[in-house]
Each structure stands twice: as C-alpha cells, then as structure tokens.
C-alpha cells in the first residue's frame, strides 16, 4: 500500500473511526499488566498487578493523535507467592505504603512502518518520574456482541529497577524488569 491509497482509505473511513475515548476494561478483566524479571539468570519470574485503571484515545487513521494513561495500584502485586508478595510490597521493593500508585501518561505516539506504535511518556514508579517508551501494537477493534465498541492493544517496555530507586540486589541478571500491558478499552 502506498501513501495515496492509505490516505484514500483514511478518507473513506473518516467518520466511521474517529478519534474516540476508551476506558480500559478492568471491570470485565479484559486487561492485564504483567511483569517479568530474571531469577538468578536461570529463568523468568513472572507476576502481575491485579488492580489498575486506565483510559486511552485512539484513532485508527491518526494514531499519532492517540494518548494513553494507566494507573497501577502497587499493593496489588501478585507473583503467586504470599511471602514473596509481602517482600515485594515492603521497603526493599515497591514500598507500597509510601508509593501506592504507579502511573504512565503518554506524551507522544509515533506510528511505525510495521504498524506498531512507539508510545513515549512519563512513568512514575517508586516516587521517581522518568520518561519511558512502550512499544505497542493493536490487536484489533470492532463491535462487541453486547452493543459496545472495543479496541485492544499490547505493549511492552522495560526499565532498570535501579533507575527508579530500587536497589535491592537481586544479582546481575535481574537488573531490568520487563512490563507487558494487555489492554482492551470500551469506547465511551
């Protein structure tokens, strides 16, 4: 497809797919925020945050005008092990009493040639705010069977725990945590 046909296609669909606001479907749990970090360099340890909320706006034809905002309740961390979760919530890691919320707010969305999007924004975590980039792509969008309209995306990012002031030594292989976000939004 060249740019002209893209533009034509965009013209045809204008009106059908305007920039719209979506609320992440956490109510129906069609969204998850997972993390993984290496354990000793021998395997992946995965976990997730059970409580979060978010909104995004998206226009298929003008993805660069999209924006997204996600807020995570840090004390909802769940790595399927109560003793570890207790440790993760403590001062060695998330310090959830001091930093109950982590937040990502996008500042720019740059569509890539392969259809994915480079979402840059500020990530506030453990009391530190730093720019971070999420590589995201759309899974699909359309009407649902219950009269609504949905759009879903997947995105991944990674950051060093140390950059956010978490310096508990998990070893050289476990410096970086990878986040993957799977969000389905219901159009408002």
């Amino acid at each position: 497809m060249n740019k002209l046909t893209l533009a034509l296609a965009a013209l045809c669909f204008t009106g059908a797919a305007n920039s719209a606001d979506y609320v992440v479907d956490t109510k129906g749990a069609h969204a998850s925020i997972n993390f993984k970090i290496q354990h000793l360099g021998y395997s992946w340890l995965t976990g997730r945050f059970n409580e979060f909320s978010g909104t995004f706006s998206y226009d298929e034809d003008k993805p660069e005008t999209s924006s997204v905002s996600i807020s995570i309740q840090t004390d909802s961390v769940d790595s399927n092990h109560a003793e570890r979760d207790k440790h993760l919530r403590g001062d060695d890691f998330l310090a959830v009493d001091d930093y109950p919320e982590a937040k990502f707010v996008s500042s720019s969305v740059v569509p890539q040639d392969d259809g994915s999007m480079q979402i840059t924004g500020n990530f506030t975590f453990h009391g530190v705010t730093k720019p971070i980039t999420i590589m995201a792509y759309k899974i699909g969008e359309g009407e649902d069977p219950w009269g609504g309209y949905r759009a879903g995306f997947s995105g991944t990012t990674s950051f060093a725990l140390k950059d956010y002031g978490i310096d508990y030594d998990l070893g050289p292989a476990s410096q970086v945590v990878e986040l993957s976000l799977h969000v389905e939004g219901v159009r408002q």
Partner: peptide, 8 residues
C-alpha cells in the same frame, strides 16, 4: 497466616 496466605 503469613506463610499460608497463598494456600502453601
């Protein structure tokens, strides 16, 4: 209760 919260 700490150690058994996850069913272990």
């Amino acid at each position: 209760l700490i150690s058994t919260a996850d069913g272990r």
